[in-house]
């Protein structure tokens, strides 16, 4: 433990890695909460894969990868909506078709362009190689995401909980959906370096699901999800550094460990307390 702390003090790359993954952990938890409450976990997976062609093209044209990633991410979200609303194809199928094709296109582009993009690093993340510019991009995204969620908290709550009433109040459900998709894309892009495309969905849904088992208040859930995301990043990075393990995978495993604890021991929804309560009830009645 001391080694890790010393190393953090000593090495700038580790400070940047830690700081970046903490920011990513927080914003993933917050946006992930809305994603799971709206039953869109698969959409999170889809968007994360759909940014690949954008990243590849950005490198090829020498622009910030963030611009291309947002473009293809949002485009895929719109495409999924279009296909599922204008045909008999169900939403999950539309997601499956569009995200795999975007991902496949991305792989072809990466190999074709032989760009400086290292496919392996995009897919699996490499938090220890975070550059200052990446770190500031992540911080910028984090600020934008948190301010937007705070500003539109009421609207996000209502459109997630009761879309019918939201529409009766004159809220634009579709616009808010695409706003959330844009935020989701931003968060995904920010997460590329810490956990990589393949595992982003875990950072989105696992800390949020953990929080969901622990509270009945949305704002508490958002805070807890951010907290679990942050803790997963810190603890994961510690294990990654100490035992020389892949950083993204370690972070995800820590997040899963938190989830398992909540799943077992949450006071209201944990299976242990539930069975204890059931047993007490039976004992009372016999």
């Amino acid at each position: 433990m001391m080694d890790f702390l010393q190393a953090v003090q000593q090495y700038e790359f580790l400070q940047k890695a830690l700081f970046t993954s903490v920011v990513v952990g927080i914003i993933c938890g917050v946006i992930g909460s809305f994603i799971i409450l709206r039953g869109m976990s698969l959409m999170g997976d889809a968007i994360s894969h759909a940014v690949l062609p954008g990243v590849a093209l950005s490198y090829a044209f020498g622009i910030n990868f963030f611009i291309g990633a947002v473009a293809t991410g949002v485009l895929t979200a719109v495409g999924i909506g279009f296909v599922s609303q204008n045909s008999r194809i169900k939403n999950d199928t539309a997601i499956g078709i569009l995200f795999t094709s975007a991902f496949a296109l991305g792989i072809i582009l990466v190999t074709m362009l032989k760009s400086s993009t290292d496919l392996y690093h995009i897919l699996f993340g490499n938090v220890l190689a975070v550059r200052p510019s990446d770190m500031w991009t992540t911080v910028g995204i984090g600020v934008v995401v948190l301010i937007t969620v705070y500003a539109f908290y009421k609207e996000l709550l209502l459109t997630s909980f009761d879309p019918t009433i939201a529409a009766a109040y004159g809220l634009p459900n579709k616009l808010i959906h695409y706003l959330l998709m844009t935020l989701l894309t931003l968060v995904t892009v920010a997460s590329l370096q810490t956990v990589g495309i393949i595992l982003v969905v875990a950072m989105l849904i696992t800390p949020a699901a953990t929080a969901y088992l622990l509270t009945d208040r949305l704002w508490v859930m958002l805070c807890l999800a951010g907290l679990f995301g942050m803790m997963s990043s810190i603890v994961g990075l510690y294990f990654s550094f100490t035992y020389n393990l892949a950083s993204g995978a370690t972070i995800v495993m820590v997040a899963t460990a938190f989830f398992m604890l909540a799943f077992l021991f949450s006071r209201k929804h944990g299976i242990v307390w539930k069975s204890v309560r059931a047993r007490q009830k039976r004992a009372q009645l016999s």
């Binding site: 209502l158 019918t164 009945d216």
Partner: peptide, 19 residues
């Protein structure tokens, strides 16, 4: 048309009417 497992209390549901 409502998600009954949504993390919202009775009070917060009623407060929606003030939105």
């Amino acid at each position: 048309n409502i998600d009954w497992t949504f993390p919202i209390t009775v009070m917060d549901t009623v407060l929606i009417g003030t939105y």
